[in-house]
Design a protein around this nucleic acid. Structure first.
Length: 187
DNA sequence: CGAATGATCCGA
DNA sequence: CGGATCATTCGA
């Protein structure tokens, strides 16, 4: 598969929900110490900052979350449950905060051949050896970045409530997007 | 189902 | 400074 061109800053400088949907089929690349790793994104969730009680940015900027109030196209990686590193892409219009959680992908290069190895945000983080030290990395310029890949047709996009966010179920927020039938999708 | 396991944040 | 919480995963 062709990885395509690096996504420009303008890709991320749009409403978070628009970016989330558009991220399906795009390619996460890390030219790291162990060579190139690449995977096709198949599951994401949008987190809408101060408007969204489930967002880490809901209560305003802190040492951990300040990056989500800044420049779009930057990585936000958090550590959760004492075990897992999960990666977000900062994405929003100017003046607000927002990010897209990368929840699942299909291995393309340098990631072995288990089709489920990147199914789930914690597993994706592990596969790419991500840590909170990657927070702040600029995806437009750094070895960790996103490429155009191939956008996914609307009929192949599933939309649902976010996983593990009870408030999202009761409020009917359908802010999770996934590629129908992909092995890299959770559940 | 529940345990693992630690960073983070809020309230005192 | 203590403890509640947590955008998860794995195994019984």
């Amino acid at each position: 598969m062709r990885l395509g061109r690096r996504l420009p800053r303008s890709f991320y400088a749009r409403p978070t929900l628009v970016v989330a949907r558009d991220l399906l089929g795009r390619v996460l690349v890390y030219d790291g110490p162990h060579g190139r790793r690449a995977a096709r994104l198949v599951e994401v969730e949008a987190y809408l900052g101060r408007l969204d009680p489930a967002s880490h940015a809901f209560r305003g900027p802190t040492a951990r979350t300040t990056v989500m109030f800044g420049r779009p196209g930057v990585a936000y990686v958090y550590f959760i449950y004492g075990n897992h590193h999960c990666m977000n892409v900062v994405a929003h219009r100017p003046g607000v905060a927002g990010a897209v959680l990368l929840r699942g992908a299909e291995p393309l290069e340098g990631l072995g051949d288990d089709p489920r190895a990147l199914a789930g945000p914690g597993r994706l983080g592990r596969a790419f050896s991500l840590t909170i030290a990657h927070t702040g990395w600029d995806l437009v310029r750094s070895p960790l970045h996103l490429r155009a890949g191939a956008p996914v047709s609307p009929r192949d996009v599933l939309r649902s409530a976010r996983i593990g966010i009870a408030e999202s179920v009761t409020s009917g927020k359908l802010w999770r997007f996934a590629v129908r039938g992909s092995s890299g999708v959770t559940r």
